[in-house]
Simulated scan of single mutants.
Amino acid sequence: MLNTLFSKRRAPSITRIALMSIALLLLAGCSTLGNANNPPAEPEPDLSELVHAAAEQMIASNPELTRYSPMIAATFVSIDNLSQSSTLGRISSEIMASALSRQGMEVREVKMRDSMFIEESVGELILSRQVQRLSAQHNARSILMGTYAQGQDYVYVSARVVRAGDAMVLGSADFRLPLNNNTRSLLEGQGGW
């Protein structure tokens, strides 16, 4: 009798455990199905992808741009201080020059010549009063210039190719770069973020 009483008490708890296990399995299956319908978010494009897309846009908006070769590239500068740049400004200029070269623009490398002063922490800065002199020194028909501005969540970059003779804008493109840890480290060279 004691055995029968003990087994009756045990039966409801085993049933409850089995039902709870089944319910948990069903819930886990539902959450797995929910994830299958929501694929993981694609990563945001990086600087190189954005710059290459901007170069393609620049050439697409003015297919005649390549007629203004050779081009020299200036370091992109902070919109708040045109004599200040950062690693972001220097690498943006380098990648854009490379991307434009792939689009058919002839790019003259100025770092190989002694006639252009390159400040170690700034790069090749070109202010409007220097455009005529530097383009003549390098026999360039156009100059790649750019600026960037740091916001709270993004860095906004504006790039343009200008005609060396009269500083007329021949092509331009803009993009924004997410302000993540990678971007912040590229900006640190300008004295903070």
Rank of each mutant, 00 (worst) to 15 (best):
G104K: 00
Y156V: 14
M168A: 15
L33R: 04
V161H: 03
A97W: 07
T66D: 10
S135F: 00
N180F: 02
A97C: 10
P70L: 10
S101A: 10
I59L: 01
Q152V: 12
W193S: 15
G151P: 02
Y156K: 13
L88K: 08
M96P: 01
H52K: 12
S92Y: 11
A136P: 07
L88W: 01
L82W: 12
R129N: 02
E120Y: 03
S31N: 05
K8H: 12
I126Y: 04
P43Q: 15
S83T: 07
I79P: 11
L19M: 11
S142N: 10
L187Q: 02
V77Q: 01
L125S: 08
E106W: 09
L82A: 15
S135V: 07
R90P: 02
S85Q: 01
V155H: 13
G29C: 05
A55E: 06
S172D: 03
F175T: 00
A149C: 09
L82R: 14
R176F: 13
A18T: 15
G191F: 14
N181H: 01
E64I: 01
L170C: 09
N180H: 06
R129T: 07
R102M: 04
N181K: 02
L186C: 01
R141Y: 06
R160L: 07
Y148M: 14
S7Q: 01
F76P: 04
A55K: 01
A28N: 05
G171D: 11
F6S: 14
G89A: 11
G89N: 11
E94I: 07
T32Y: 06
E49A: 07
A97I: 10
L144C: 09
M112Q: 11
L179E: 04
T4S: 10
A18G: 08
L177N: 07
V107S: 04
A149H: 12
A55V: 02
E44Y: 05
T66Y: 05
T147F: 14
A164G: 10
M105T: 00
M1V: 13
S13M: 15
P40T: 06
G165A: 08
R113F: 00
Q132V: 08
D166E: 12
S86D: 11
S158E: 14
R141F: 02
T87V: 06
Y68K: 06
F6K: 14
A53Y: 03
F117T: 09
G191R: 14
R10E: 13
I143L: 13
L5E: 09
A73V: 12
A97L: 09
A97Q: 00
S86W: 12
E124R: 06
L2N: 00
M105G: 04
T15E: 14
R129P: 05
S86F: 12
S21L: 06
Y148V: 15
N38D: 02
G191W: 14
S172H: 11
L187C: 07
R129M: 00
A149S: 13
C30E: 09
Q57L: 09
A167V: 15
P12S: 15
A173H: 06
L47Y: 11
D166Y: 13
M116K: 08
V157F: 12
G191Q: 14
G189I: 13
I91K: 06
L26N: 04
S92H: 09
A99S: 07
S135I: 07
V155M: 15
L125N: 00
T4F: 08
A28V: 04
K111W: 13
L5A: 07
L50S: 03
L65K: 06
A23E: 08
S128A: 06
N181R: 08
N38Q: 11
K111Q: 11
